[in-house]
Design a protein around this nucleic acid. Sequence first.
DNA 1: AAAAAAT
Length: 642
Amino acid sequence: MIEEDWNAEIGDEALLRSLEKVSLLERPNDPSSVFSPSVDSFDTDEFVNTQHQPVSSFGRGRNFAAKGFQEGNGEDALPQNRGFKGFGQGFHERNAVDGASTQNRGFKGFRGGFGQGARDGQRGIPQSGALRESGSLADGAGFQEGNGEDALPQNRGFKGFRGGFGQGTKGGQGDIPQSGTPSSRERGTLTDGAGPKVTYVPPPPPDDEEAIFARYQTGMNFDKYDENVVEVSGLDPPAALMSFADTNMCHTLTVNIAKAGYSKPTPVQKYSIPIILAGRDLMACAQTGSGKTAAFLVPVVAQMMRDGVTASSFKEQQEPECIITAPTRELVNQIFLEARKFVYGTCIRPVVIYGGTQTDYSIRQVKQGCNILCATPGRLLDIIGRGKIGLHNVKYLVLDEADRMLDMGFGADMKKLVSFPDMPQKDKRQTLMFSATFPEEVQRLAGEFLKTDFLFVVVGHVGGACSDVQQNILQVSQYFKRDKLIEILHSIGNERTLVFVDTKKKADFIACFLCQENIPATSIHGDREQREREIALRDFRSGKCPVLVATSVAARGLDIESVQHVINFDLPSTIEEYVHRIGRTGRCGNTGKAVGFFDNNSDGHLAQPLIKVLSDNYRGRGSVNAGEVRMECSAREIESWD
DNA sequence: AAAAAAT
């Protein structure tokens, strides 16, 4: 009810500004140069809030945020003076007055208002956030480092915000020299290119056998994958295999497959593996969570074992046999971790490189030997351009989430990749593409990368949603989404839930809001530093933060155990993205639930495709159960809105 | 319109 008040009072424009405000508070600063509270300044209650750094960074952040939003108390609302700048006179009337008059009080109000500020007053800027993430609480060193340097971190954060979020268009104060956070610089949204270097080096993955082969349980519907109709188009497809033992894979690989917990191949594996082993190009489409990664890794590793690889040794330029690329950093990392299982005990060395980390670190990893390179496009092209990767030895080029890799955002990079003079022509390499969705126009683009006799495997139908995900669509208008979200989260208890929103700042805002409501949440999006993204994901995986609020950065490929719910707080703009997002649950034969908030004002274009996706699965099941009846109702409901 | 991906 409080929330309803809130909504009624501040209205749309003010809501957006509030979002900006929260984002300002949350803007990660360079973690090494910010103040942060010491661990003992948190009591248990507050510790919950540390789940999301914006709030945690304030210690009493919950009160802060509550006042800021609900009472419009300027002093509390904008503890950093940068905040006032950010809003200018535009902030909600009630705040505008306070805002103007307290502009220079920012620090004071803040320090006085929040515990840790008083204790560490000399450091000035508490919000700092960046490493206030739960994990960083243990990171005593990080805290200490902040001393003394942070005289003006708030200004930096502010600029970073303008530059990073405004993308040069909304900033309105573009004259401010932008140094920004590392993440805001990464995408080249800033013009001056100055600022601190990206120094992040990811923690090394655990390398004991048990950790490498860690996996989660297949679900009760695993065997139902076989009910899918599989269609293979193209000339002379090889026969599907029935079990992993049907191939002549070397003993080590067979053992690794078993250790990794793969006992029976899924349809996409049954068909893709022999096709790849036969040296054919492949475009494969299969529902989310049905084992596409192993469908290309297993045969690629098998071939490499059969043909031999360049022994790993230190060299300035490495010549990988296989390049795997995917649209997000976390996803390439996940593919890398999966590859480590299959190559265990062999001489094949997989390497992962991606942006947001020290380039030198990526280069060091590559130099030590590289047979399978997992990379995001930008860092890949960068490293190739620096001469660290020779392409002439590439036998396998894998595009995971291929439709995404070929469309607008990445298509040019992929063309660049295959256009390097030493990249083998398509008839001299194997090109493999995998995705759960593949719009026809992108299928046509794909042809340019594939041999003319490539095979096209479709499990179920192209773009179909995973049938183990029970889908519901609720009509919820903009202003009631948060109420509905809270209601749902309370009703499902502590189960792992992924909440998708449409913008980066809203991701922070909603995560912040949930923390205020005592629901430990964190966020992941492209304006967070890579370290923060990885901590957020780790905390979500571990259950420390059972709710992760994300932009589409987390829509594809991420395989997180026991995500029971996906909530599309904002529906995505395309049906493909919807299918991928809900596919974060219901993986590997497990069941999951998805709820989408359908807002008539913004989601009208999705109505028809949603009906199709929902009704396809309804028919696919053959029998009617409660869930599916609801699903059908949902579909009809949507139709009537149109 | 937003998001992602190198610096």
